[in-house]
Design a binder for these strands. Structure first.
Length: 301
DNA sequence: AGCCAGGACACGA
DNA sequence: TCGTGTCATGGC
């Protein structure tokens, strides 16, 4: 997982072109359900619009080229490269996972080019508190509602930044409920209060090892093992995390345990054993593979 | 109408 | 430690 690739960056008519990355699929990465602020622009092709670190990003992939549409200044390019881990050699990761067994080979084939993006811990934490017993489409709606209500407008994009902890802290539980967060509203408010007041330092949690960081996150209301694993994997670089949700539970039971129901704890231990440091990536391919049978219209919008 | 969605939690055995 | 009902909300 070394970050070693040299990227070629060039500008033309205000747009920026990034080349030199290996296995990467923009649409698969943005719409796989790990992040909730990406919108596919147009009904086909590789055009995605999203918000990362308060910036509105309009990205287009043309085979081995990733185009960042204007405004594409140096800092924006750095955000994009960082977020998608474009300097990381991903072909080797996919080859390792595909080599584990035929099932994992099929899973990788179903979502080749899927990257684990580097989300912001605070936004990721709230997003996955919202995710509890919820659908991807509904999570996206709630996150967008929270941003529109307490974030800041971004230029003329019609999109809003995800609210800072201090801004979200000003929202009452009833306010958050109007964003359709449902029974998770209380958890959202408590998390905002604790982070805003410095009682929980997400940077400090990020610096901890996987076990300690997970233990710390689980202290929050609305954060159990699954949500903690998602935050650790998607925003804190803990690639050994293996979030077990209903899809993964079904997939593993059916593909590896002969259909016998297995406890989530057993699945986590099995995954740690089988995948080790690649557990997080393996989980994402399995997740994409398991959801493949569901039509696209159920996953976007 | 009832079940499900990237679950967590309180409760009871 | 393990199973069960419940918690909003929307799509099927």
């Amino acid at each position: 997982m070394g970050e070693s690739r040299k990227l070629a960056v060039s500008w033309r008519d205000g747009a920026c072109s990034i080349r030199g990355f290996d296995s990467f699929d923009l649409h698969t990465t943005c719409q796989c359900g790990q992040a909730f602020r990406w919108v596919r622009a147009g009904n086909a092709g590789q055009l995605e619009e999203g918000v990362v670190q308060g910036r509105f990003l309009r990205l287009e992939q043309r085979d081995a080229e990733l185009v960042v549409h204007p405004p594409a200044d140096d800092e924006t390019i750095a955000v994009v490269v960082d977020y998608f881990r474009l300097r990381q050699s991903h072909t080797a990761v996919e080859a390792s996972i595909a080599g584990i067994d035929p099932t994992m080979a099929a899973a990788v084939d179903s979502a080749r080019g899927l990257r684990l993006v580097a989300q912001e811990p605070w936004e990721c934490l709230i997003s996955y508190i919202v995710s509890a017993n919820n659908s991807v489409a509904q999570i996206s709606r709630v996150v967008e509602n929270l941003s529109r209500a307490w974030g800041k407008p971004i230029g003329s994009s019609s999109r809003y930044s995800f609210p800072a902890p201090g801004d979200l802290e000003r929202a009452s539980q009833a306010d958050v409920l109007t964003c359709k967060a449902g029974f998770r509203s209380r958890s959202i408010c408590e998390a905002a209060r604790r982070v805003a007041r410095g009682e929980l330092d997400l940077n400090a949690v990020t610096a901890m090892d996987y076990r300690a960081a997970k233990q710390e996150l689980i202290r929050l209301r609305g954060v159990g093992e699954k949500v903690a694993d998602c935050v650790l994997l998607f925003s804190m670089g803990k690639f050994e995390a293996f979030p077990v949700d209903v899809w993964i539970e079904r997939a593993v039971r059916h593909l590896y345990f002969g259909g016998e129901k297995t406890s989530q704890r057993d699945i986590r231990e099995w995954a740690e054993d089988k995948f080790g440091d690649l557990a997080g990536y393996a989980q994402e391919y399995l997740f994409a593979y398991a959801r493949l049978a569901i039509p696209d219209r159920l996953r976007s919008g």
